[in-house]
Design a binder for these strands. Sequence first.
DNA 1: CGTGTTCATGAGAATCATTCTCGCATAAGC
DNA 2: GCTTATGCGAGAATGATTCTCATGAACACG
Lengths: 135, 135
Amino acid sequence: MTAPEVPGRRQTRQRSAVLALLDELDGFRTAQDLHALLRERGDAVGLATVYRALQALVDDGLVDVLRGSDGEAAYRRCSPVHHHHLVCRSCGRTVEVADPPVERWATRVAAEHGFADVQHQLEVFGTCSSCTAAG
Amino acid sequence: MTAPEVPGRRQTRQRSAVLALLDELDGFRTAQDLHALLRERGDAVGLATVYRALQALVDDGLVDVLRGSDGEAAYRRCSPVHHHHLVCRSCGRTVEVADPPVERWATRVAAEHGFADVQHQLEVFGTCSSCTAAG
DNA sequence: CGTGTTCATGAGAATCATTCTCGCATAAGC
DNA sequence: GCTTATGCGAGAATGATTCTCATGAACACG
């Protein structure tokens, strides 16, 4: 389906498998999860390769990373435009949200304190309606 | 200086040392850093104890945690009111900033998507004026 | 369509932050 | 002072991530 040709990046079975898997999945998944899933479906890929593929995808802007409170990295296939996430802390379901006001606010506050080259990172966590219902 | 008596929490030399050190320091420091600093100044404290102390301080709301891009946790003595950080990515200097608009925005967006129990995490990174000048 | 160069892969070892274990010390309450 | 739960320390254990290095495969070129 998606065949993103990034210059200087070779197209291998393993890399496609990782990206294809991420395409199917909804929320953020850890590298270990993805590795286990690939292995389950018989499409065996080395763990180190999963890490390498994910890093490449992140570098190319095709995937977003999120660090959980335990420090474990979670990955998700994302749209390339700037956005933030609304993540269900129970089922991991994710909604992408844009936030023009926050962008402006961050830039302004940073400028007021003499900071240049500003980046920001924002995630919103909550419990989605299904999980609230499920109790 | 600060002698925060938290009920159910014993006051020991080690715990005071960790908190005192954090009081002196400006930016975010990793547990390993803090441990090394304590050891340098002769005030030896076990590494495991530093971790335990920091966790307790975080639980008591006296210290904030931040996860770097490498997943390593960094700690900083902070004011107990809700706030976010403006962090210099070069020297680590930190400014606490409040952000009523973002609070409201996060809550509203979450509600629109049916999410309850909302929390958010926001950090702004940049290069502070001194570091920009120093090139 | 071969073929060589270069980059990717995989298995396992290595690294490194963090947590656990467990016997000993000590703060707090009486 | 005495008791007792709690904290401490050293080192082992855990677990995610990265490195190593020999093998394999993609791509450019003829």
